[in-house]
Simulated assay, not measured.
Amino acid sequence: MSFAIDKHFCGDVLVDSAVFVEAKKCVQEAYEIELAFITKKECCKDELEVIKGQDQLKRSSFEDYKLDQQLYLTSFVTVYNQLFVSLAKQVIPHKNYSPPNLVTDIHVLDRVFII
């Protein structure tokens, strides 16, 4: 990946820097253009720095790895994927069940007690 950095200096002071776009000019740019006609010397200057990236990339396939590397990679991916498998949602059949209203206490009515 290559990219460019554009810098605008007013005198020795960095006013703006931008990546991929043009840097903003300072407020005195219009005044400096008129002054440059008179003195033939400019105060503001622009610098463009281009950073070159790598042009050729090495591409490899799964078959290019050794057998033990293939085994390790396959087992790692399999175990890693198993970490994110969620458990089945448990169904509670009596979750919304409400017991019937008690009219009388049947144990007392029949006189059946656990001793």
Score class of each variant (00 low, 15 high):
residue 3 F to N: 02
residue 10 C to W: 06
residue 12 D to S: 13
residue 17 S to H: 05
residue 17 S to I: 12
residue 17 S to F: 05
residue 18 A to E: 08
residue 18 A to N: 12
residue 19 V to D: 00
residue 21 V to D: 00
residue 21 V to W: 00
residue 22 E to C: 12
residue 23 A to C: 15
residue 23 A to W: 00
residue 24 K to I: 15
residue 24 K to Q: 09
residue 25 K to C: 03
residue 26 C to Y: 01
residue 26 C to S: 06
residue 27 V to F: 05
residue 28 Q to G: 13
residue 28 Q to R: 11
residue 31 Y to I: 14
residue 32 E to M: 04
residue 32 E to R: 03
residue 34 E to D: 05
residue 35 L to K: 03
residue 35 L to V: 09
residue 35 L to C: 07
residue 36 A to Y: 01
residue 39 T to E: 11
residue 39 T to C: 06
residue 41 K to G: 11
residue 43 C to H: 00
residue 43 C to L: 12
residue 44 C to K: 01
residue 46 D to A: 14
residue 47 E to P: 15
residue 50 V to I: 15
residue 56 Q to V: 14
residue 57 L to N: 08
residue 59 R to V: 14
residue 60 S to E: 13
residue 61 S to E: 15
residue 62 F to A: 13
residue 65 Y to M: 14
residue 65 Y to A: 15
residue 72 Y to S: 12
residue 72 Y to D: 05
residue 72 Y to F: 10
residue 77 V to I: 14
residue 77 V to D: 00
residue 77 V to C: 09
residue 80 Y to T: 12
residue 80 Y to P: 00
residue 81 N to Y: 12
residue 82 Q to H: 09
residue 82 Q to A: 11
residue 86 S to K: 08
residue 91 V to W: 01
residue 91 V to P: 02
residue 92 I to W: 03
residue 93 P to H: 05
residue 94 H to P: 01
residue 98 S to Y: 14
residue 101 N to R: 08
residue 101 N to E: 03
residue 102 L to T: 01
residue 103 V to G: 06
residue 103 V to D: 03
residue 106 I to G: 03
residue 108 V to W: 02
residue 110 D to G: 09
residue 114 I to A: 11
